[in-house]
Nucleic acid binder design. Structure first.
Lengths: 138, 138, 138, 138
DNA sequence: GTGGTCTAGACCACC
DNA sequence: GTGGTCTAGACCACG
């Protein structure tokens, strides 16, 4: 598990962690049932406060992404276990995200086709794993 | 000019204003050279603090979207006028937005094709606002 | 607003706050639209850390009990605004609570009628307001 | 003896065991003098740590619910044998539980009569219900 | 002024 | 060992 955070990015560190964990799950680099690094370990690795890691984990658990087993650690949840929870409002979230992206793209002067290609490329990068910047493991 | 804000959405009010103004420009409902409502008028209409509207306008001006003419008000800028300002980093912003969207969509269980369709639909909805053709900038 | 917490009760302080706020809303001592004390104020009054109060407020907001208005404070939400959110699983929570209570009561040797009376008395106390219970400490 | 625990429920595993044992006693599915499964057997069945089962048993013994006979195992105690132990504080516990339940119910929008009915139903289920109600998981 | 985030260090319950 | 809670104090974004 290699994660990287940028404390000076202005984007909350705990959200950076959340996003990367979700990204790894989607990309298949974290599989259901797999154990996440302990709060202390990850905090030491990233050189941040354990509470910050804990906040990220707590939020992920609330979102149904991972589950906590007392005294054992955090584990990636089986997909479908939480599907019922947010299956209904997920589309709304996604279309909202699409609207935001489309606005940005149009504002930047991209054509419709160009914008779609950018999304397609991003998806490709997500499933194959970022080419640069991240190392595979395990 | 119809704007609406939700003070309790957790999303900064001044950003809500910025986003809607940009959206209107992209959709062609605000055309280059057109005058925006005054800070005080808009604040009164939305029942929010004038400082908040002012911040939105200032940020829009910094982004080169609108320009301030002392004593006259804020005006939508001619496309291309700000091209030099952020032409270089705009693509980076867009790809970043694409990555965020793709992550959300994948996490929500959408297929690649489905995600692309959602984006295409959002674009369609954006341009088929009440008005004519889309003016692209840059 | 009179709240009291017992830091040495073993029950998390932030949950004590949550419970009392909910209790006050149910009892009508906090009405929809009313403003809660600021995090700093309440923390100073209770002589606890602001972060602890903040955690209580954040959790209440997540539960749809209160809403945050940026830069203004926390406000009691209008009932029904969140009804749709947890209307479905609320009954499950309630029946679970009922099962726990019934088990306790039976284990303690109460009769069925006696247990019902205890609940009825508790409801009475809730709506009329705790007779004692509002004590200052430290 | 069929017990089930959910390690990822957030509720301590040892308390889940305690609660189910007490429930069985109240419901008559475990009668005074009856022997509980050994720590090792139950731990193996539930696929949990024997220390956890041991803690549950120890706590039950402290509460006077069961008694340990060295070299023989744990046995359900005769009712009344522990009455003197917690007869005094039991009512306080029960009224506390009632308050918690009433708060939950009122918050969920139940009427006073409805809440009482839920409790009555739960009691009914407790005494009649040993039939099924046992679910396996994992 | 408001809440949001982060740090450094501590104690606790649980497995 | 694990995560959960709390303290004391700091900086930032927002209205």
């Amino acid at each position: 598990m290699f994660l990287s955070v940028d404390p000076s990015s202005g984007f909350p560190v705990y959200r950076q962690i959340m996003e990367q964990v979700r990204r790894m799950i989607v990309a298949g680099r974290l599989t259901p049932g797999e154990k996440l690094p302990s709060i202390r370990d990850l905090a030491a690795t990233l050189q941040i406060n354990p509470l910050t890691v804990g906040k990220a984990y707590t939020e992920l658990e609330r979102g149904g992404i991972v589950e906590m087993r007392r005294g054992l650690g955090m584990y990636v949840r089986r997909p479908g276990a939480h599907a019922a929870t947010d299956a209904d409002d997920a589309p709304a979230t996604v279309t909202g995200g699409a609207q935001r992206f489309v606005l940005e793209a149009a504002q930047a002067g991209l054509s419709r086709a160009h914008a779609l290609k950018v999304v397609d490329d991003a998806w490709q990068e997500l499933v194959t794993g970022p080419v640069k910047n991240v190392r595979r493991q395990r």
